[in-house]
Design a protein around this nucleic acid. Structure first.
Length: 706
DNA sequence: TTTTGAGACTCAGAAATGTGCCG
DNA sequence: ACGGCACATTTCTGAGTCTCAAA
């Protein structure tokens, strides 16, 4: 690419993109639940709980009443109207969202005046559409609506339903008296009882929603009137006893149970796609239970009701035998033959009714392998465009147009910090953010010191409510722009509140549209893949370059090197885990061991000294050769070194999850090539699942370069 | 139209389960 | 030899991303 051109990406042109060839895709009728759930009233948001998480706002009163002016955040409207009926504050939400949209639009219009020039033909979005339209002769056939045909024949056995609830009959106490419960009631109460030792019981939202669920099954006239007087101990103890019983089973009994279970599941585990026998991923319909949302999910604790066959759609080949519905007296909601999708079955999630749950093939299937390869190839391709993209956003930072500067900043963060795009969320989800939904509150501008470094402290809850906390050095222009966007006052007038959007003039969708102008298929998430992979490759190279005969290094050390690189990537992507339970304890043990070893080494050193002087005797009073003591000493020292390293690594990784990046972000070919080039068995790095998931990558050359 | 939401897929950490090691 | 443990792997399902068609 000639990168010297000064042309900019035609943001304004993007809109043309809505193509309209072909008939609308076969519409899938919505499945009607067999037993409509009363969906116990949606309740007001536990704002207090959420606010507690937020950093203290500049002005405490801002917390509630002041939100209505300026850009309304999701929470704000909800909160203002929290007294409204449960019958959906949907409308209100919409009004508010429209408001955001309107403002964003206004910003866009303003910018459209300074419309950038068009790019060369061939890289614009229009030509991409043409290419797609002309597609079809390529690899995969294309159906009338332009979607790829994924399979020709498809045979499978449907899904496995959890067994109906079996009552245990153990009576919980209410007001110290045993209570009778119907099986349905017992099921909910038992689910709650099982939560005893989890943190969920410390969450007011969970407890409140769960109590609502209990009230719903108990009915108006039940003796149980308050959660406080409920004592679930008998059920809890029954549960513990059951667990113990299971543990006490003999090996043979355990084996038998497992065999029976496997036999019952066997037929669901595989399916036939064209000429391939493939493993099915999750063939089980999710059992009922109390919803375990992450973070401060407003729905946590709600009862996730049982799913019945009538709610399930089966996707299967026309020629295949439709699996028999496994629940007596029931039948499938719908059977379809959509060749453009890869799933075998789906149903609506009982908690988030607008979401679907799918049964897909396993990670080692060809469907997954193909899309995995495509993902990494796309990320590799980004290398050809990244220079231009970076150049453009550096330029964008100086634009007169605020929206352009916001886009530039956001892309900068996506590129340099590997942030997620951050789409808008509904109010009935946990309040988390990504790049484009960062709030003023989430960034803190550190003073520029003598070193001239511009540092920003990011602190927000991202996906899964995992906290992202990072002081990052960023470009001066990004710093000043972001500071500008987050101004709380301008000329003495209020500009933004802590809960307002930092990038108020654009959204994740806008960014992705812009990306399409650079490279077909480019979106924000590609940057994460790209950065993870390129980082791994770079770190591995640095390590191997630093040593002359890297291949000769002990395998264990090479593995440690790999893990170090892996760790850097995990940190970049903010992949965290909670400190393993018992970490502190096992750390103590390790330290004890270490102390003992240090003593041992000390003793051996003395022995060695004596032995050299011919004065060291063993337990039997025999003189020992210095040589012998020396080898003993060396070994002990070696063990000591190893143990120290082990301790350091353990402490180092206690909150870092290496697996996620290994599974999802780092191109496996980098790893495989490295193993081949430096004579490390791939099994040391990839476990059985990974080996089979990445089997498509195994033949790559040792010289593979990402 | 432009926006909205359904749909389909990837990615996420916790919990459950399996294993292998150590005293 | 064996139980318990720490650690690894597998399962589970929730939470994102992103596209496209309907309104």
């Amino acid at each position: 690419m000639s990168s010297s051109s000064s042309e900019e990406v035609p943001l304004a042109k993007l809109v043309a993109a809505r193509s309209s060839d072909g008939p609308p895709a076969a519409k899938k009728p919505k499945v009607i639940p067999a037993n409509a759930d009363s969906d116990s009233d949606s309740d007001d948001v536990p704002l207090a709980a959420r606010m507690a998480k937020m950093p203290v706002p500049a002005s405490p009163q801002a917390a509630s009443s002041t939100k209505k002016s300026s850009k309304l955040s999701k929470k704000s409207l909800k909160q203002i109207h929290s007294g409204t009926s449960s019958g959906r504050s949907e409308k209100l939400k919409k009004i508010k969202q429209q408001k955001i949209k309107k403002e964003r639009k206004a910003n866009k219009v303003a910018k459209a005046g300074a419309k950038p020039t068009a790019r060369k033909a061939g890289s614009g979005i229009k030509s991409k559409i043409k290419r797609n339209a002309a597609n079809g002769k390529g690899k995969k056939a294309v159906e009338g609506n332009g979607k790829k045909v994924m399979w020709t024949t498809l045979h499978h056995h449907g899904v496995l339903f959890p067994p109906e609830y079996t009552p245990h009959g153990v009576k919980m106490l209410y007001d110290n008296k045993a209570v009778d419960l119907t099986p349905a009631q017992e099921e909910v109460m038992t689910a709650y009882a099982m939560m005893r030792e989890t943190d969920y019981l410390k969450k007011p939202t969970f407890v409140k929603n769960a109590w609502n669920a209990m009230k719903a099954v108990l009915g108006k006239n039940h003796v149980i009137k308050s959660l406080d007087k409920c004592d679930f101990t008998p059920i809890w103890e029954w549960h513990l006893a059951e667990k113990e019983k299971k543990k006490q089973m003999t090996k043979e009994e355990k084996k038998k149970v497992k065999e029976d279970k496997d036999a019952a599941e066997a037929k669901y585990k595989f399916c036939q796609v064209d000429d391939r026998r493939e493993q099915v991923g999750n063939f089980r319909v999710e059992p009922p239970g109390l919803f375990r949302g992450r973070g401060e999910h407003p729905k946590m604790g709600m009862w996730k009701r049982r799913v019945y066959p009538e709610e399930v759609t089966i996707n299967i080949g026309e020629d295949a035998e439709v699996p028999k519905c496994p629940v007596p007296g029931h039948r499938w909601g719908r059977v379809q033959h959509d060749h453009t999708v890869t799933w075998l079955a789906c149903w609506n999630d009982p908690i988030n009714v607008r979401d679907l749950k799918y049964v897909f093939l396993a990670a080692n299937s060809q469907f997954k392998a193909e899309s995995d390869l495509a993902k990494y190839e796309k990320a590799r391709k980004l290398k050809d465009y990244i220079e231009k993209i970076r150049k453009d956003y550096m330029k964008g930072l100086k634009s007169k147009d605020k929206v352009k500067r916001q886009m530039a900043c956001a892309i900068y963060l996506i590129d340099r910090l590997a942030l997620r795009a951050g789409h808008e969320k509904d109010e009935d989800e946990a309040d988390t953010v990504g790049c484009c939904t960062l709030k003023v509150d989430n960034v803190e501008f550190l003073d520029v010191g003598d070193d001239g470094k511009h540092e920003v402290k990011f602190d927000f809850l991202g996906k899964d409510s995992i906290r992202y906390e990072n002081v990052a050095e960023i470009h001066e222009l990004v710093y000043s722009n972001m500071k500008d966007f987050s101004l709380k006052t301008i000329d003495g007038k209020r500009a933004k509140r802590p809960e307002d959007l930092l990038f108020d003039g654009m959204s994740a969708t806008d960014i992705n549209q812009l990306f399409k102008c650079y490279m077909p298929g480019l979106s924000a998430k590609v940057f994460r893949t790209y950065n993870a992979s390129i980082t791994l490759a770079k770190l591995l190279r640095e390590q191997t370059d630093a040593q002359q005969r890297y291949s000769g290094k002990p395998v264990e050390e090479k593995k440690a090197d790999y893990d170090r690189a892996n760790k850097e990537v995990a940190i970049l992507c903010n992949h965290q885990r909670s400190v393993p339970k018992g970490h502190a304890g096992s750390m103590d043990k390790l330290n004890e061991k270490l102390k003992a070893l240090v003593e041992e080494v000390k003793g051996l050193k003395d022995d060695f000294k004596k032995a050299k002087a011919g004065e060291h005797k063993d337990a039997k009073g025999k003189f020992v050769a210095a040589e012998k003591v020396k080898t003993k000493l060396d070994r002990a020292q070696e063990r000591l070194k190893k143990l120290k390293l082990q301790r350091a690594v353990k402490e180092d990784l206690k909150t870092v999850a290496l697996g996620t990046s290994k599974i999802n972000y780092m191109d496996p070919r980098i790893t495989i090539a490295w193993c081949k080039a430096f004579e490390t068995p791939i099994e040391k790095i990839f476990n059985k699942s990974l080996l089979s998931k990445f089997h498509w990558a195994m033949t790559c050359e040792p010289t593979f370069s990402f």
